[in-house]
Design a protein around this nucleic acid. Structure first.
Lengths: 137, 137
DNA sequence: AGTATGTACTTTCTTTTGGTAAGTATAAGC
DNA sequence: GCTTATACTTACCAAAAGAAAGTACATACT
């Protein structure tokens, strides 16, 4: 695994061997993980892999998001340094969102997960059907 | 990307080129994705990568999870065919949870995401600090 | 006989989060 | 001076999550 971040301070060896910490509730990774794996966070990262998008474009691209949730999700991802917000001072407002370098890193991993699920969706769904028919017997 | 599922019916070419569907709200991948990336789903999959666990072991391993949520999460992952539940008919009950083959596939991808975050936690957190100090100015 | 113990849940109730819809700001165009 | 466009925020209600107590049942202890 490669670790490339724009912000300096590379992870130390100690960091690398302090593994499995997410399972401890106090671990700050939990909070980051929740931003990234939140219902809309996943989809925003995935959508931004296609390139820069405006707010309204993201809203259209990600079917079902409310403006409130999209705004909230983008803020969280921006705070974590995964998303870059560029506001052009015009009226009506024009704001663009794109992935930072670290955002690209997480988004790539999210994409792998999403892709695997999309490719294997059929067997998974039939597993679901089989399960629910067993349970209803 | 390799696709190996225990259940037959490999994904067709059509499946593979029907990409970006998660962004459509009706796509069933959304539902699977939510099970996998749910707050506790991620941690359960991650924990089960270490091997088979009993219910009470998982509860202890995953700090902060309530029994209700653990039970709910395990059911969802079992229904999707990611987790295998083995109940030994004894009293007091003895139930073991493990990953299926497809569970391993998703869990591996979840692990990559989790590991990346854990390794890069420091720069991310300092990005957060910088962001919040900018916002409070 | 009655009580405690251990395990894997389920149920009830409260709190937090998410969704829906309407409101806000502001300049340009009709 | 009324509408339009864009990126939000706010207020309100529904849904989900969290906390804590309850359930089932055999075995062991008093």
């Amino acid at each position: 695994m490669n670790n490339s971040m724009t912000e300096g301070s590379e992870p130390t060896l100690t960091d690398k061997f302090q593994r499995g910490n997410v399972l401890a509730s106090s671990c700050p990774s939990r909070s980051i993980l929740q931003d990234v794996t939140s219902r809309w966070g996943v989809l925003v990262l995935f959508a931004l892999l296609q390139g820069t998008h405006r707010f309204s474009e993201l809203r259209k691209a990600i079917a079902g998001v409310s403006e409130k949730m999209l705004s909230q999700t983008l803020h969280a991802l921006e705070a974590d340094g995964f998303v870059l917000r560029t506001a052009h001072p015009v009226i009506p407002p024009h704001v663009e969102y794109s992935l930072t370098d670290s955002g690209h890193e997480v988004a790539n991993r999210v994409e792998e997960l999403v892709n695997w699920i999309e490719v294997n969706i059929n067997p998974i769904l039939s597993a679901r059907d089989k399960y629910s028919s067993l349970k209803s017997d």
